[in-house]
Amino acid sequence: MKNIFVKTLSALSLSAFAFTAGSTFAADEKIEVTPTPKVTSQELAAIYVLSEVCPKLVSDQAKFEQGYAKLAKEYLPNEKAPVAALEKLSKQKSFAKILKEAQADAEKAGDAKNKEICKELTAYAN
């Protein structure tokens, strides 16, 4: 389900990227090394923008908040409070440009496309 959100966000020009994890094998020892995907600032900005856009577009706020929290936890698994971490990040000066780009992309996408993502995120709570 996480990849659906990433693909949808990307399709809506929210600068989210799909993760790819490759495997590398050591020649003689056959040791598998799988790199951990790195979450980009653009992805975090796109996720945060959902918290700004979706509340006015969904009817079940509690389900939205659960889905949003679940998505945030998947992208920030080492954070005790990932939603709060995103909120804090959104206030940092160094993040402002990336956040503004994500907000502009969401605005360009329009309410219909944004509502579709928000509804998926509400269903993601289950």
Results as ranks from 00 to 15, higher is better:
E116T: 09
P77I: 10
I117W: 08
T122E: 04
I98D: 11
K70L: 09
D111W: 06
V83D: 08
K7W: 02
L99M: 09
L57I: 06
Y75Q: 14
E101P: 07
L9V: 00
E79Q: 12
L12H: 13
L89G: 01
N78L: 14
A84Q: 12
F64N: 07
A96D: 13
A85S: 14
T34A: 05
P55Q: 04
A106Y: 02
M1Q: 13
L121E: 01
K30L: 15
K113E: 12
G22I: 13
L99S: 00
T40W: 04
P82K: 04
L76V: 06
L50D: 01
L50W: 00
A104P: 10
F17Y: 10
A46M: 04
D105V: 09
V49G: 04
N3C: 02
E74V: 03
K119E: 10
A45C: 06
T24F: 15
M1A: 13
A106N: 03
T8H: 03
Q92V: 10
A69K: 09
L44E: 04
L71T: 04
A106K: 05
F95V: 09
L99Q: 01
T122D: 01
L71S: 02
V58C: 02
T40Q: 06
T36Y: 12
K63A: 14
Q103I: 10
Y124P: 04
A123I: 04
E74K: 07
S90W: 03
F5V: 00
Q92P: 05
V58P: 05
A109W: 03
S41D: 12
K63W: 07
S23Q: 15
Q61D: 13
T40L: 04
K97T: 15
F17W: 07
K73W: 07
A81K: 12
S51M: 03
F19E: 13
V39S: 11
S23Y: 09
Q66I: 12
E74N: 11
K91G: 06
